[in-house]
């Protein structure tokens, strides 16, 4: 009898529990966006669905959480494009350093449904797809010693997300790439296992990395979204009118998250300064030149990125 029951939660309360996992704390914009998602669905379909959000990697870190969405053990999770790259390499497009030339450029591409559709549904064969994107800001270096020029990275061990392209990028910068799970970064810096990491400003405060790494350099190497992904079977089994509610909820989540993002970055900078973190403006061009050869290399290796890459570059041209 154990084996045949399928639908989560139905055995007990009649409500279908929808579990959403993410790796951030409860004050992070991702969580705030998901709370809006929960509120939107439950205010409309509250008699049928109970949305439960599991923060802080409780249900699994990075790739492991995605695997669980694949199997349907979890319904939704927030996934980094770096981790998604190990499932479908179209996501490699976001790993290309200096792909976008401004935040406006980045946002206009992400809002372009036409361009995004192919990416969002690319993992259908793996049993999940992206339902919306979340702003994860601009990624910059931070370390225990100031990084002002690419030379300052030489011999430094810098944490990267667990993806081959990120490893390559870090090596192109001249540093030694150390892929590790985000949750291990604080102790790793503290214990000198690594000398720094690269991320947006929130990592300094939400994850307290500013306590151990005091120099944050605005070299702006990546603008990378996070994806809210969902189990495909879950989405497809929803009746059309309910599916619409969940789709709208994803939009609501996107808006709430992005609104909270810009406030969060400002607040994070203030707090980080209080922790003694120094924010360094650096010559972006020097960093860009180091890794520009990677564009061609990545496109040659992964030709399916070419159309979307060209479209993004074209858009950049029209923006100028």
């Amino acid at each position: 009898a154990f084996v045949v029951s399928g639908c989560s939660g139905s055995a007990f309360s009649g409500k279908r529990i929808v579990r959403i996992s993410h790796s951030q704390s409860e004050t992070h914009p991702d969580h705030i966006g998901l709370l809006a998602f929960e509120e939107y669905v439950e205010s409309r379909l509250g008699d049928k669905y109970d949305i439960q959000i599991f923060p802080n990697e409780i249900l699994g870190a990075s790739v492991k959480a995605i695997e669980l969405v694949q199997t349907g053990a979890i319904d939704y999770c927030v996934a980094s494009t770096g981790n998604l790259e190990t499932f479908d390499d179209i996501y490699q497009i976001f790993s290309i350093p200096y792909l976008f030339n401004s935040e406006e450029h980045y946002h206009s591409i992400m809002e372009n449904d036409e361009m995004m559709k192919g990416i969002f549904t690319s993992t259908d064969a793996s049993g999940f797809e992206a339902v919306t994107w979340l702003d994860a800001g601009v990624r910059n270096f931070y370390a225990t010693t100031p990084i002002r020029t690419p030379d300052d990275l030489k011999g430094k061990k810098i944490r990267v997300q667990q993806s081959p392209t990120n490893v390559k990028m870090m090596e192109a910068f001249g540093a030694s790439a150390t892929p590790m799970s985000f949750g291990e970064v604080y102790t790793a810096i503290q214990q000198n296992v690594i000398n720094g990491a690269e991320n947006n400003e929130l990592a300094l405060t939400n994850n307290k990395h500013g306590e151990v790494a005091k120099y944050y350099s605005y070299n702006e190497h990546q603008m990378v979204p996070d994806m809210l992904i969902a189990n495909l079977k879950f989405l497809q089994d929803l009746p059309p009118e309910e599916r619409q509610v969940f789709d709208e909820a994803a939009e609501v989540c996107n808006r709430a998250e992005r609104e909270s993002w810009s406030d969060a970055v400002e607040e994070a900078k203030d707090i980080a300064k209080g922790m003694g973190v120094e924010f360094l403006e650096v010559d972006v061009t020097a960093f860009r030149e180091k890794v520009l050869p990677l564009h061609k290399e990545i496109l040659n290796e992964n030709p399916k990125l070419r159309p979307i890459y060209d479209a993004i570059q074209k858009e950049a041209g029209s923006n100028d």
């Binding site: 790739v63 695997e67 694949q70 199997t71 190990t86 499932f87 479908d88 793996s126 667990q162 993806s163 081959p164 490893v167 790439a177 892929p179």
Partner: peptide
């Protein structure tokens, strides 16, 4: 066996071998 099949297309971050 299921997880082994599921991760056929995934690769590890550093070594780059199939998960």
């Amino acid at each position: 066996t299921s997880i082994t099949k599921l991760t056929m297309t995934q690769v590890t971050a550093s070594l780059g071998i199939p998960m």
